[in-house]
């Protein structure tokens, strides 16, 4: 691996980490790691969480990284058994301008949002997607419940050391303001006539 490739890989991984992605290096090598991936919002995959396996070739970024889903996902372009992804931008039309953050933040979410039924790796998913939307989504949820919930993820991969669910414990619930409503309106029990007082000190 050339020094330029090494530097480029370090830059990419660092960018992932700095953008709050959970990256776990395999044997502390920078060329192989796992990334925690949350299903994109407003898709049937929304509630799921998957682990991506990423391996960078020696001549990265000239050659594309190989990426696969570790836990199972139901998707026309992802092989259910091996988890390999069929996506042109990380295969034939890869450009060295892309980086890992692009892959994780827009290429894979894009694929989950818009599957490409004409070039399937999972025929069952492709057929259902075209013919029976309800059944298709049901199947996706079924897979999530079986393989990709938070519990299943922890069961299978152990750690969940991510920053995305550290709810700030706000100890100071704002005290309700209701009881000072009557603080200043005590003049209505008008038994005392108003007396003018100057507000300067005596």
């Amino acid at each position: 691996m050339s020094s330029n490739s090494k530097r480029r890989i370090e830059t990419d991984v660092m960018k992932l980490l700095m953008s709050d992605h959970d990256v776990e290096l395999v044997e502390d090598k920078m060329q192989e790691f796992h990334i925690k991936f949350h299903g994109p919002k407003d898709t049937p995959y929304e509630k799921g969480v998957w682990r991506l396996h990423v391996e960078l070739p020696d001549n990265y970024p000239y050659k594309s990284p190989s990426i696969g889903f570790v836990n199972k996902i139901f998707h026309p372009n992802i092989d259910a058994a091996s988890g390999s992804i069929c996506l042109d931008v990380i295969n034939s039309t890869w450009s060295p301008l892309y980086d890992l953050l692009n892959i994780v933040e827009w290429m894979i979410p894009g694929l989950l949002k818009e599957p490409n039924g004409s070039d399937p790796l999972n025929n069952e998913a492709a057929t259902l997607q075209l013919k029976d939307k309800d059944m298709y989504e049901q199947k996706i949820h079924e897979y999530i419940n079986k393989y990709a919930t938070k519990e299943k993820y922890i069961q299978q991969f152990g750690k969940w050391n991510s920053s995305d669910d550290t709810d700030d414990e706000d100890e100071d619930a704002d005290m309700d303001e209701s009881d000072d409503e009557q603080a200043h309106d005590d003049n209505d029990s008008m038994e005392l006539s108003d007396i003018e007082v100057s507000d300067d000190d005596d």
Binding site: K6, E10, V13, M14, L17, M18, V23, L25, M30, N161
Partner: peptide, 20 residues
């Protein structure tokens, strides 16, 4: 960056440049 470096073992081998 400091918080990230404490938990993950990522290298940064480029001198004279910030890793972010």
């Amino acid at each position: 960056y400091e918080a990230i470096r404490k938990v993950s073992h990522v290298d940064w081998s480029t001198a004279d440049e910030l890793p972010f």
